[in-house]
């Protein structure tokens, strides 16, 4: 699903050149649930932004669903973001003057789905997240957990292949964080590939594979044994 080969990325700030990613090689299979860990400045968010086509890269090759993503026009990038990728952010990034339902329906607006139809779909997803009765509330009337579930509903509504989550639990308490991870697992079980950037061990422990970044290179890739065992139990049951 995602294939990264020798990805380099630097930021130029005046005369300073900050080499953030120094050759990343990574293969992510369809349906995987992966976390990216690392201290701040290790390049994990940059990596996620490149995978989400929110940012470009300097060197290497990045394929998404088999297509090479490189020097893409904004128009085409918009299409990929809209049809292939769902984003979940630490700060939720909801539009403050739109109510919950309208926020969830936004990606469908850019797919040119009619108003009535997309609001209906948005209500289904809100229902799924247990937010039906909050449909007509503005984001600032919701709790942190509710906001993040809203953002997840929004990321799911366009039936993406990949969900990219940047510190999705960063602004939530630990109980809500674990609820959120259960939600991600359920989504993963429907076959959607998920990449989470986090610096919390507990959160990473819930994923199948942990990619640890250090100074712009992959330090280690750990397959999560517990997670595998848990999966096999699911199959047996």
């Amino acid at each position: 699903m995602i294939s990264l080969k020798g990805i380099h990325k630097s930021y130029v700030n005046g005369k300073n050149r900050l080499h953030v990613l120094k050759g990343i090689d990574l293969e992510v299979e369809s349906g995987e649930f992966i976390s990216i860990m690392g201290s701040s400045g290790s390049g994990k968010s940059t990596l996620l932004n490149i995978v989400g086509i929110l940012d470009n890269y300097d060197e290497g090759e990045f394929r998404l669903g088999g297509e090479v993503i490189r020097n893409m026009s904004e128009r085409k990038a918009a299409w990929y973001r809209n049809h292939m990728i769902g984003f979940v952010f630490q700060s939720f990034n909801l539009i403050s003057y739109k109510n919950a339902m309208e926020n969830v329906a936004m990606p469908l607006y850019y797919q040119k789905v009619g108003r009535r139809k997309r609001n209906l779909r948005a209500m289904e997803y809100l229902d799924m997240m247990g937010l039906r009765e909050w449909a007509h509330h503005l984001p600032n009337e919701l709790s942190g957990g509710q906001k993040q579930r809203l953002a997840i509903a929004r990321s799911l509504i366009s039936n993406p292949k990949v969900i990219l989550a940047d510190e999705p639990t960063g602004a939530l308490d630990s109980k809500t964080s674990l609820e959120m991870m259960d939600l991600f697992k359920n989504i993963n079980n429907t076959g959607i590939t998920i990449l989470i950037v986090t610096h919390e061990r507990d959160i990473a422990a819930e994923t199948q594979r942990i990619i640890r970044l250090r100074d712009g290179v992959i330090d280690s890739i750990v397959k999560n044994g517990e997670r595998k065992k848990w999966l096999s139990e699911q199959v047996m049951a």
């Binding site: 904004e74 128009r75 918009a78 990034n93």
Partner: peptide, 10 residues
């Protein structure tokens, strides 16, 4: 930015 991440074209 949010709109663009959701698929808004220029």
């Amino acid at each position: 930015g949010i709109r663009k991440s959701l698929g808004a074209t220029p």
